[in-house]
Amino acid sequence: MGKVTTSSTPPFSQEASNFDEVYMQQSLLFDDSLKDLKNLRTQLYSAAEYFELSYTNDDQKQIVVETLKDYAIKALVNTVDHLGSVTYKVNDLLDEKVVEVSGAELRVSCIEQRMRSYQGFADHGGRSQQSLVISTPKYHKRYILPVGETMVGANLTKSKYVGCSLDDEEEWPHFRNAVRATIRETPTSTTTSKGRSPSPSVQPQRPGPFSFTSTMPKKDLDKRSVSPYRFPLLRTGSRSSRPTTPNLSRSTTPKPSRPITPNPSNTKQRYPSEPRKSASMRLSAERDNGKDVEQFPSKSKRLLKALLSRRKSKKDDTLYTYLDEY
């Protein structure tokens, strides 16, 4: 008589001491369950053939039917038991794998974060190295273009004075001190050039400390607060002798018809947005005038003395000498 023969798993007499042994035992149980499920089909087919023959050949058909019923119930229960065990183990195994994959994702995320931090450090280091390598050009204040002027060839428009804001009255003492220091450091060397007539509107250089309050009236300072040429910085000694006040030039010059320095009353005020001459052209012209102004008073005095003290009998050698110097 056929019975559902399922492989009976022996009870574990000795428990696993560690995780590997438990894992191996569970794996063996799972394999046995899968083998039983595979053998269940053949067993059911063989049992069906046996009961068919017994029912046709045996006289006690009722007993055969009852035995078949018992076998079918046991086979069904055993199948459900095996399938439940196998599915539970499969689900457990899948969950373990999902947990392992999640742990691996976490580890990979940690590695990616560390790689990003390393890349950030590397980028920061490279950026700092490149920033040390690049040398930004530093221009003197006199080369900084005013508002609205464009750089020739670069088409760059400066919106503000960089580092030189004369509108702020709090910075005036700093500019005064800077200009004074520049004037003191600059040697007051005067050079003469022959063949150039002195400009009548220039004044001689005044020795002593330079002071804006003394040379310019307060009213002019207030009116010309936007002019970038109010405190011209000095480049050389010849430029340092440029006249700044119209009053002094008017008092010393014989023909004060054309004052150089801008006067709000009789000269056109220069705005920062107006187009200007180039610095080299303007400075060369003023440099010549400044040289003439430096030489004119002393030489005129000497010329007058020579004219007054000379005798008619003598020949005007000294006079011609002085005239030649002009």
Partner: peptide, 17 residues
Amino acid sequence: ASLNEKLDVLERRLELL
């Protein structure tokens, strides 16, 4: 399928790393 997708993504990330 979800496990296979996770493993694929993990494999790509590991290759990139």
